[in-house]
C-alpha cells in the first residue's frame, strides 16, 4: 500500500512538474526573444554604379539628343563671340548659357571660355599648345594642363574603373574626366552620406564622446 502511495506521489509530482513546464513554455515568463528593432533597407540610390554625368562621347554612343551641342544654331560662323567681364575681371555669363556655373581653378582663375573652347570653331576644343580636339575627345584637353593627373589616369591611379580587372575575361571600363567632373566647375560638390552602422545599443552614440573625454 505504501509502495502504491509512493508511486502515486511520484507520478503526481512529475505530472505537476511537466504541467508547470508546459505553462512556463506557453506563458514564457522569462521573456520571448525580443522582437528585433526595425532597420530600414538602404536607399537603392546608394547602390548605383552610374557616374554623375555623361560625357559627349557617351551621349553619342547612347544616341541621345545632341541639339545642345549645335553651337551654330545660335552663334554665327566666322564671328568669334565676345566675352564680357565685370570690374573684378569675373566672366559675365550670358543669359543663353545661364545654366553654366563657373568654378574652374582655385579663385576661379580659369574664367575664360576660350582657354578650352575654340573661338573660331565652337564645335571643337583648343589646347594651349595649339592642338584642335573634337568635343568627344576632351580627356587630352584636360591633360594638357593637368599633366600629373592625366599620367595617373593613364596608369590607373586616378579615376573610376569598372568591369573586369582580368583582360582575358572581359573589358575594363575606364571613365573620362567629364563623366565625373563638371568641366566648368570640376570640384565635386558635397553629397549626403549613406546611413552609418545601426547602433544596436541605444546609448552607443554616447560612447565615443566619453571616450574622448579622458
Amino acid at each position: 500500500m505504501s509502495l502504491n502511495l509512493k508511486t502515486s506521489a511520484v507520478l503526481t509530482g512529475l505530472s505537476c512538474a511537466f504541467l508547470a513546464l508546459t505553462a512556463a513554455f506557453l506563458l514564457n515568463p522569462w521573456g520571448r526573444p525580443q522582437a528585433r528593432e526595425f532597420i530600414p533597407l538602404v536607399d537603392t540610390n546608394f547602390l548605383s554604379t552610374a557616374t554623375v554625368r555623361q560625357s559627349y562621347a557617351e551621349l553619342i554612343r547612347l544616341k541621345a539628343d545632341l541639339s545642345d551641342f549645335d553651337c551654330y544654331a545660335c552663334h554665327e560662323k566666322g564671328k568669334p563671340p565676345t566675352l564680357r567681364f565685370d570690374t573684378n575681371q569675373v566672366l559675365i555669363i550670358p543669359t543663353e548659357h545661364a545654366n553654366l556655373v563657373m568654378g574652374h581653378g582655385s579663385h576661379n582663375r580659369n574664367n575664360n571660355c576660350f582657354n578650352c573652347h575654340d573661338e573660331n570653331n565652337l564645335e571643337q576644343f583648343q589646347t594651349r599648345d595649339g592642338r584642335a580636339l573634337k568635343l568627344s575627345d576632351s580627356t587630352p584637353l584636360c591633360g594638357s594642363c593637368h599633366g600629373p593627373t592625366y599620367r595617373d589616369w593613364e596608369g590607373g591611379a586616378h579615376g573610376r574603373t569598372g568591369g573586369f580587372w582580368n583582360k582575358a575575361s572581359g573589358e575594363t571600363t575606364r571613365r573620362n574626366c567629364v563623366e565625373c567632373h563638371n568641366p566648368h566647375a570640376p570640384k565635386f560638390p558635397g553629397r549626403a552620406p549613406a546611413p552609418g552602422p545601426h547602433l544596436l545599443h541605444p546609448d552607443a552614440h554616447i560612447a565615443p564622446e566619453t571616450h574622448a573625454a579622458h
Binding site: 557616374t51 554623375v52 569598372g162 580587372w165 575575361s169 572581359g170
Partner: peptide, 29 residues
Amino acid sequence: GKYPACLEVCPVGARKFGNILDPNSEVSY
C-alpha cells in the same frame, strides 16, 4: 575576373584593385 563591388560603386574612384604579379596592372602602377 571582375572588380569587387565596393570598387565599382565608389563615386570618386578612390578604390583600386588588381593583380600585383602583373606589372601592367593599376595596383602595380
